[in-house]
Amino acid sequence: MKYTLMVNEGPYQHQSSDTALQFARAALDKGHEIFRVFFYHDGVNNGTRLAVPPKDDRMLQKEWSELAEKHGLDLVICIAAAQRRGLMDASEAKRQGLTADNIAPGFRISGLGQLIEGGIESDRTLVFGD
């Protein structure tokens, strides 16, 4: 089965991000395909490389990046939600006249069309969070 995942909550405010990550791992381990993971609303905070959780906490952003590298996942951050929350990749930062970016490895910024395409191309779209 082919899945698209939509993550609507940040990594440390709600269980949704962790549940989505665990689902993705389990699905891939069972031979299923993850077509795309789309991060929306506060879920875009899963893609920042500047978060520094306490040493005894998990670094979910790094875990998403590692999973993407290992399995070639497409991790897409909604551009409108990202801009509202101060997340920029290098090209968007330049376009906005900013001098720095903060997107974690393996993530990319794009629009809602990527979510629609994921829904069309996948057998199921699962939403994690409100």
Rank of each mutant, 00 (worst) to 15 (best):
G72E: 09
K30H: 12
C78R: 12
N8H: 04
H32K: 06
R49I: 01
G43V: 10
N46G: 03
A93R: 01
Q83L: 13
I109L: 15
A80K: 09
Y3S: 07
E9M: 05
G86E: 05
A90K: 12
M1R: 04
R84I: 08
E69H: 04
V127D: 08
G119E: 08
Q61L: 05
D101T: 02
P105M: 01
E33K: 06
G119I: 12
L50F: 08
T125R: 12
H14Q: 09
A20E: 02
R49D: 13
K30Y: 07
L21W: 02
G129M: 03
S17K: 06
Q15F: 02
E33V: 09
R36T: 15
D57F: 06
D89M: 06
H32R: 04
N102P: 02
G86M: 03
G72Y: 02
G86C: 02
V52I: 13
I120H: 09
T48V: 11
R124E: 12
M6L: 14
Q83N: 11
E9T: 11
V7D: 10
Q15G: 11
K55V: 15
S16R: 03
G43W: 02
F107A: 08
F38A: 11
V76M: 15
A26L: 03
E63A: 13
C78M: 08
E92W: 00
G129P: 02
R58G: 06
Q96T: 01
E33H: 06
L87T: 12
G118T: 15
G129R: 05
L73M: 14
G113D: 11
L21S: 03
R25Y: 05
I116L: 12
G118K: 09
D57K: 15
D101E: 13
A82Y: 05
G118P: 07
Q15R: 09
Q15V: 07
H41F: 02
S16Q: 05
A20Q: 04
E117G: 04
K55P: 11
M1V: 07
H14R: 08
L28P: 02
Q13A: 10
R58M: 08
E92D: 04
G97A: 00
L75F: 10
S65I: 02
L50Q: 15
L21F: 03
F35R: 15
G72V: 03
L98W: 01
N46F: 00
I77T: 15
L60W: 07
H32C: 07
L28H: 04
L50D: 15
Y40S: 06
L60R: 11
A51W: 05
G72N: 05
R36W: 07
L126K: 05
A90Q: 06
